[in-house]
Each structure stands twice: as C-alpha cells, then as structure tokens.
Design a binder for these strands. Structure first.
Lengths: 207, 207, 207, 207
DNA sequence: GATGAATGAGTGTTCATTCAT
DNA sequence: TATGAATGAACACTCATTCAT
C-alpha cells in the first residue's frame, strides 16, 4: 500500500546480469517518462509497459501514481541534503565551503537531470499532503544553504549589501533553470558549468 | 480557427461599466486557472463556467484549448519584447540600460505573475508546432538581452571572465523562479525585488 | 452535473413513435438491470449499451452511477407519498382509509416491482448523503402511515394491545418482501394479493 | 477447495485464552464486514486484514470469496432449521407451537443480526449453484413453518379465511425487515419484540 | 500450512472536441 | 453567434485469484 523502499533483500545478492527488481524498474521508467512528457501526460499504462510489468504489479508496490512521483522527490532530496551537509560540515574557510556547495548542487542536478526537471516542473502535481512534506524538506535544505551565506556575511567575507535570502533564490533559480537549457554532451562539461555558476554566485557576494 | 486577437474590437468603444467581451473573459479565466492548477488539470468546462459562457462560445473564438495557452504566451512575449526593445534602444550608458532591462523583466514578471508562472511551467504542454514558435520568439528576446551584456564586455565595462550566455541564463533562471517564492503583498515591493536582483546581476559582471 | 429531471420540452411534443429521450431510456435500462443483478453488479457499460448510448451521454445527464440510483428512489418515493396522502386525506372511516392505504402500497409496489426490489436491496449502496435524504423521505411516509393506525387506536376502532410502530413495520416488512416471492402472472392478481395482505393487517388490529 | 467446516477441530481442545483458529477468525470478520458494507463492497484484502492473516491463508481454507458467504448462509440455516424442528416436534397444542416457532425465529434473527442482514441482502451475490442450494434449504424451512399454520387451520383453531402461504410470507417479510429497524440496546428486548410480533401473527389467524 | 508477488480483466469517471440547430 | 447534446478514447485504480516458494 505504501511506497516501497527498495527491498534490502533485492539489493543484497543480485547477480550482475539479472534485471533490476520490479520497484526499481518502475521508478526508473517513471523518472524517464515524467521528465520527458510531464507527470500528467504520462499514463500509468505507459509506465508499466516501459517497465515490462502489469498495472497490478505497480499497485502492489506503490499506492498510487502520486506515490511514484513522491519517491522520486524523496530520492533526490535525500541525495542533495546528504551532500550539502557533508560540504557544510567540513573544516574549511567559508568561501570555499559555499563555493563547493554551490558547485555541487549544479553537478548533482546535471547528473540527475531527469530528477531535477521533474522536481521543478511537477511539484504542483503532488497531492497536497505530500507537497507539504516535500516543501518542508526543501526548506531545510534551503536554510542550510542560506546559513552559509549568512555566516560569510557576519564574518565580513561576503558583502551584506544583498539579502542572503535573495542570493540563495538567485542561485536556485538558476539551478532550477538548468534543465531548460543544459544538454548533456554540450560545449561545457557539468564541472565547467558548475564552476562558472558558482563563480557568478561568489562574484555577486564580493564586498 | 486560429487564435483570435480581439484587442482591436475591445479597444473600440466599450462603456466602462460593461463586462469585457467574451474572448477576454475566457482568456482572463484561463490565465487564472492555468496558473492555479496547471494547464492539464484545468478542464475546458471549468474555463467556460468561470467565464460564464458555454463550450460552443469558446470553440467559436479559439480553435482549441491549446490556442488559449498559446495566446497567453504570445501576450506576455509581445509585452516583454516591446519593453526590452524600448530600454535597449535608449541612448544611455550600457550599465544603465542593462540594469534597467534586468529590473524591468522582474517587474513585468511580478506584475503578470500568473502569466509568468504559466510560461515556465506549461511550455511543454503546447503542441510541438506552437512550442517551436514560442521558443523562437523567446530566443530573440534572449539574444537581445545577451547582446547588451556582450556590448558591455566589449567596452570593458563588464568583466569577460564570465560567459555572457551563462549570465543571461543565470538571470532568467531567477526570473523563472520568481513565481515559486514571490508573494504579492510580501515584505518587498516588486520594485525593490527588481532592484536587488538587478544589483546581483551587475555585481557579478563587475570587472 | 446534477441528476436530470426529465426535460419538460421533451415530454411536451414527442410523436408517439419516437424513441423516449435519452435520460428516460437510461433510467429505464438502469432500473431493469439494477433489479436483475443488483446495483454493484451492474456496470455503467451495461447500462449505456442497454440504452443504446455512450458513457459520455450518461455522464452528460447524470453526475454519477449513484445519481441514477437516487433518481429511481426519488421517483418511487414521490409516487407513493402522493398516493398515501390522497388516501389519508379522504373523508372516510379510518378502517377504510387504513385498509385502502395498506392495499394501495402493495399494488403500487407490485406495479413497480423493479423499483421496489431495488429500494430494499440497494439502499446501502447509495452514497451516505443521498442515503440520509432518502431515509428522511421514507420516514415521513412511514409516519403518515403510522398516524392512521394511531388515529384508529385512539378512536377505539383498533386494538391498542399492539404497538402502532410494530404494526407498521410488520406491514412494510411484508411489502419489502414482495419482490422476493411475487411473480407477475402468478396465481393471484396484484389486487388480490393487496386485498389479502390488507386483510391480514386489519385482522391483527381487531380489538 | 470446498468450504472448510472446521467445527470439529475447534471443538477439540483449545485453551480458553487462545485466539480462535484461522477459519473462525476469517468467518467472523467476513460476517461483520459483509453485514456492514455488503458482500460486493468488501474486498478479500479487507477480510484478511481484519482477521490478521494473509490472502494465501484464506484461500487455503476457503475455495473462494463466494465460499465464505455460502458458509455464513449454511450456518444460519442449520441453526434455524434445528430450532424450528425442535419446536414443531414438541407435544403441545398447535397454537403454542406456532407462536413459539414464530417468536423463536425473531429471537434467533436478532441474536444473529449480522447473519440475518446478510441473508436477505446478499442472496443474489451467491453463485447460481450455491444460490439454488440455499433456496432449497430455505424452502424446506418455509414449508415446515407453513405446515404448522395449515395444521391449525385444518383443526379449526386458525381461520382459513387467509392463505397459509401469505401468512408465512407476511411473517418472514417482517423477520427479513428486522435488520432494517431493530437496534440492539433499543427500547425493546429481543424477547419483547419476538412476543409482540408473534402476537400479531396469531391475531391475524384468529377465526 | 502459509506467503506475497503478480496477473489481467474490469471499474467508474473525465474530457477535448464535434455538430446539428 | 452561440448552444448543448453526444462522442469515444483515455484515465487511474481495484480486485479475486493464482502460484512458485
């Protein structure tokens, strides 16, 4: 009935040539389709066909189409929160930590471009309850990021002529926008894009 | 069968207390609903009920639901292109023109927050043909904006350590993001938000 | 959206050889099928096929399958209440009025045996809101009937050794049961069954 | 694959504090749910959840969902036939035997109100084969009851102005109806209701 | 004896669109 | 100009049942 968290048993001892277990296959297919044509335009039928199972199987593992979307959100949020926490907790100058965090979210978003595209485009399709939950986790992430900016401002390393809040929105707006223009295999590598965007952020914070 | 552009008719001679003509009512209702619940989640039935007309009337003025969406896009694009052209053509230092253009798109987006929300969220719901058309107009807008950045870079007023392309994406990413966090009646007036965001842009271009 | 009450226009001037209008056809088919196999076992698909229309047409006239059921209830309740009121309001001795009322509900139930079968078997399938409404109307009917018994008891024409409430339940239980055993074209005419059952009721009320 | 009749096993040697064995738990849960929401609206999933077992367990003991329903019918029919036979076989005046039989079926129905509610409401949901079987047993019961009426009529103790058949239908219609209005803990005890209803029956048979 | 993953046909409902009037 | 009845394909979801383990 509830969204399946990948079975540990399945993760344990799967021979490398075996197909991934059903819930993973469903999640992967759904991610691709949601990113391609949007949540509302993807039918459950298409998902199960893509994953090579039947509707019954999907509903055995996930309570609803909505649950699939929620699981995609949760997966990306978990990943990004972990990485931000790791960077922020490091023992390094604030400029370095903020720059790394800023670059890291860009790289992660590019590496999971489907997830990221879904994230910003389909938030409103989540059921109200799940939407609230996702927003709360998103806010936690946001606040941790803003705290880095504020720490630098208090220490005089960054200008406080600009609102920390707005700077963070500026940066995440741009991350949000990535899936609108970034194409894998384009002129710039993910790392280069990340560096340049992080550089823009740092520039706007120069005293 | 194509989208009606009924502006002229309306501009003619409507007494101030008369209700706006049918096509405008439909467009206004559709805009509100599309922004509220998304294009796919808004039914034609809801639009005609909101506008107080019947389905037949809608299909009399618009060829399809898709046409309504397209007209909303066209309306916003026309407006923004006009304003950007006006600013860019002015006889003023490049810093001033870029700053004004950057601030102006923020103000315009906030003043038409519904249109802006629809713009970024529902682009993919347009039919392929109309989508291509909108993208082309959008690109024209984008390029005129980028030309301002490049003009400043060539003149040495702005740093060329950053890619003009990326700077523009950075800014429009943030404009895109506005509807995600800006609430009318919030702490900052549209003008203040616009000034701060334009300021961020200019800061990141400082040599 | 709401249940259609037969269009007056349609009722006005329909040539006798024309098929009945769509809502009536749907209602008639639904009544037959609900009585035959029960509400839950009748699919919307079967109803529309039986009525020779499409699902869209059904949902044009009725908000839901539930609405169809409700309309069947309302139709029978209206009919029976009218007839009970007519009998009860008559200027005749109470024995005659009660006997006539008791016989009348039997005749009406037999003449609308499908409706009656649905009534008692499918009440619980109605949505809670509509169920409440139907129960309220049913209670009104019940109470009017009981008032007749009580009037006779107060006047000493009927024994008051038995509870009026229970007598009424006794009689309606039997009416309820009719669809379980009465078969049209059987040994007894509706009128004969009605007379005998009314007789049973009157006998149990003899002082 | 046929319905298990596990009474013997249960009767053997279960300590009083042990939970009832699985088949009983399933039957008890199914009875409650069928009475509450009807057979068609109760899912096998709900039954096994309510009984705290898995689907596999249910299908181990019962061949189908239909079997569960059939077992509930069989259980009530066995009980009522036994009790009617006991009363009818007694050596007592016919009035006393009929009155007792009439009262007894009321008491039994109230004491097993869930079973009784299911009986009259869900007969049509049984598979045709099982339905035929249940109807046959029901008829046997009915006929034994009618024989009591006829015995009294032949002996001149009851009037034969009314058809024995109809009298029996009158009474069982009312028993049928019990679950529609009787509420445990109401104003009248089961015994009182039974006495009054039996009294009504006897009154209508007075010469 | 018992599990629970998986099936596949079915459910009621929605909706953009058409068209005779 | 405008109506509203009608379409038909699609939708998310349910469920009794089976079967390898």
């Amino acid at each position: 009935m509830t969204a399946a968290t990948p079975r540990r048993a399945a993760a344990q001892a799967r021979p490398d040539d075996a197909p991934p277990p059903v819930p993973q296959r469903l999640l992967a297919t759904a991610t691709r389709l949601f990113a391609d044509r949007g949540y509302d335009r993807t039918s459950v039928q298409e998902i199960v066909e893509g994953a090579g199972v039947t509707k019954g199987a999907l509903y055995h593992y996930f309570g609803s189409k909505d649950d699939l979307l929620h699981e995609i959100y949760a997966r990306l949020l978990r990943l990004q929160q972990e990485r931000l926490d790791a960077v922020a907790d490091r023992d390094a100058p604030i400029e370095e930590r903020l720059r790394d965090a800023a670059a890291d979210v860009v790289v992660t978003s590019i590496e999971n471009l489907d997830d990221a595209a879904i994230f910003f485009r389909s938030m409103h399709q989540l059921s109200p309850g799940k939407q609230k939950q996702v927003r709360a986790e998103r806010r936690r992430y946001h606040e941790r990021f803003r705290a880095l900016v504020e720490e630098g401002q208090r220490g005089g390393v960054f200008t406080d002529a600009v609102s920390a809040e707005l700077v963070v929105d500026y940066h995440f707006g741009c991350v949000h926008h990535l899936s609108a223009w970034y194409r894998p295999g384009g002129r710039l590598t993910p790392r280069e894009v990340a560096d340049q965007l992080a550089d823009l952020l740092m520039r706007s914070l120069r005293p």
